[in-house]
Design a protein around this nucleic acid. Structure first.
Lengths: 340, 340
DNA sequence: GATCTGAACGCAAACGCTTGCGCAACAGGG
DNA sequence: CCCTGTTGCGCAAGCGTTTGCGTTCAGATC
């Protein structure tokens, strides 16, 4: 078996408490002894058992991260960045992939993170019941995506402004039949699709364009969903000349559908996405860029800071990261005669 | 504070041992008592402290997963699938994102998973020293990617066959100047790029094509790297008419570079990738498809199985998943006059 | 030189669980 | 009716740390 603290203590001719204090840099140990113990521990390959130390101290040095879909670019990128910050600070991360309703439900009823984490970062939006469950854990909570929520610090972007810049761009190009591919079918408490939809409607209204419900379709935030949605839109009585997709992945699905229909982008149909996906540049997609990795890193830093200052009152702060419209090759003025 | 096992015991008028046995379905408890305790525990919202139980039992119900880059599609997808299998089996996953050499080194010297996990899934290839460190943990080890390794069960694909199908496809189309974008700059012990390179060389040799070293470039397995590599190849005295990229992400970077150089794909240059990335279809990329999520799931299942049967002798098995060439729109016979 | 002070260290009690063992109580076989 | 099993449960000893408190001792203070 691996060495325990008493092995080190015995070998060093000191008590276990001294070893503990020496290794964690606590006061009450002379410099010579400390150095000797540190060297000895390294030599013996000693690492404190996390279970034992967290049992004794109540701290776990572990942070839970809740993710809807690790495989999706957005979440993977956020997680990647957050993990770097956490591990640099000496924390381990416990990952929960809560994509399906069943796993999600099971997680919130069993709450396996109880007494296992010092803090929680959630990349999904808990509903009222779920956030109550998380608050009951009594650890700092930070979430990316979504609106303000009591007890949570949230870091995100200005969805409204982002959407406005995208749709206005299409309006300014001269488009009047502007479709939208959204992710409306998600959980109702997820405000992002709603925010973006409202902004979309507002821009149209401001431009004096009547809203046409047949120009909206659900793309489920996936490539396939985007493809289906675009196909749906193309089947409308008067198909759109431009489409705003609420995510780049859906936009790429739309591009695929358009190619299948032998429609040219941007000549026949303009497409603008949201996210600035790593591959958006490859397909030349015009999109609303948001700093994805930075959001993860910032959220992680905020969480660490909140752990340091255990004020009773959680700030419930909201951090907004900058967005900007990136013009590429999928948008252009409408074709004089429209599609088909 | 949250309820402890003694709280439940007291409330139920039994001993803590009985509560422990009842909740974990151990024998030695009558059916009535068991039901009563289970109900009581649920009512009190009791969950056993993982630190305490793992300290006492030595089992952690946690599986460590080592990933080079969570944000990359391949690894994100594998992780996603593996996590589902683990969590369905009641295990938590501890994630280590070991992209940079420093974090990787720190991980292997400090080995924070010691006594923290019951098993380890690594999505990276440990070198000799690293695998020795992992073996010293005394837990089952499974790895995806890479060649056979003592103590490890590995699930992967036939890199050689995959590469051969891709390069042969280009040869069959009539190409003679076939470039390759690889990830050769990675750690030397990573055999994948080497396997693929050897297969590439073999196919060329079999076709009677002399190997031209200026037709090889390093793409670092990233989009940007692929773009740089393609740019490099295009600057060669005699640029290739076709390129095999060892990953789809590099292939997409190559596509971007080609677009920047106003070269048409596949008219001027053919491109074939490897992986069948989620977005490969969107850009019409011809590629070697491998079942990525299935590899993660299969690796996870193998790991669980090995945990169930604690045979002294690890099987050191190797599982190979099927691959197939997917023809899309980035490959065609060479242009009669070649590029430029 | 007696007293005080602080630093450096050891003791032992937690932390919350698991588990080997012991001990009733009870059943059934002789 | 005794003996041997079996079943159901409690006791208590860990598991490997952390940490409050007590002790020792060198040096400073008067």
């Amino acid at each position: 078996m691996t060495a325990s603290i008493t092995d080190v203590a015995r070998a060093g001719g000191v008590s276990a408490s001294t070893v503990s204090r020496a290794l964690r840099g606590r006061p009450g140990v002379s410099a010579e002894v400390r150095d000797r113990i540190v060297a000895l521990a390294a030599q013996l390959g000693y690492t404190a058992s996390r279970s034992a130390s967290s049992l004794a101290s109540g701290r776990t040095y572990t942070i839970g991260v809740l993710v809807p879909y690790v495989g999706r670019w957005f979440f993977g990128t956020v997680l990647d960045a957050a993990e770097r910050v956490f591990s640099a600070a000496g924390y381990d991360v416990l990952l929960y992939n809560l994509g399906s309703p069943e796993t999600r439900k099971r997680f919130f009823t069993r709450l396996p993170v109880r007494k296992r984490v010092d803090a929680l970062l959630t990349l999904l939006i808990p509903d009222e019941e779920e956030s109550a469950a998380l608050r009951s854990l009594g650890v700092p909570l930070v979430t990316t995506v979504g609106g303000p929520r009591p007890g949570f610090t949230v870091v995100g972007i200005d969805d409204r402004a982002g959407t406005e810049s995208a749709v206005r761009h299409l309006v300014n190009l001269g488009h009047r039949r502007i479709g939208m591919i959204s992710g409306a079918s998600g959980p109702l408490h997820w405000t992002t699709p709603i925010e973006r939809r409202n902004a979309y409607l507002d821009v149209l209204a401001a431009a004096g364009i009547d809203h046409d419900p047949t120009l909206e379709a659900d793309g489920d935030y996936t490539v396939e969903g985007g493809e289906r949605a675009m196909t749906e839109l193309l089947a409308a009585a008067r198909p759109p000349t431009a489409v705003f997709a609420q995510s780049d992945e859906m936009a790429m699905g739309a591009l695929r559908a358009l190619r299948r229909h032998r429609l040219k982008v941007p000549e026949d149909v303009s497409v603008v996405g949201f996210d600035d996906h790593e591959l958006a540049d490859v397909v030349g997609l015009t999109t609303v860029a948001q700093p994805v990795a930075e959001q993860g890193a910032e959220a992680a830093r905020l969480l660490l800071r909140r752990m340091d200052e255990p004020d009773a009152e959680p700030p419930a702060a909201q951090v907004q990261m900058p967005i900007r419209l990136v013009l590429r090759e999928t948008t252009a003025p409408p074709h004089p005669r429209g599609p088909q």
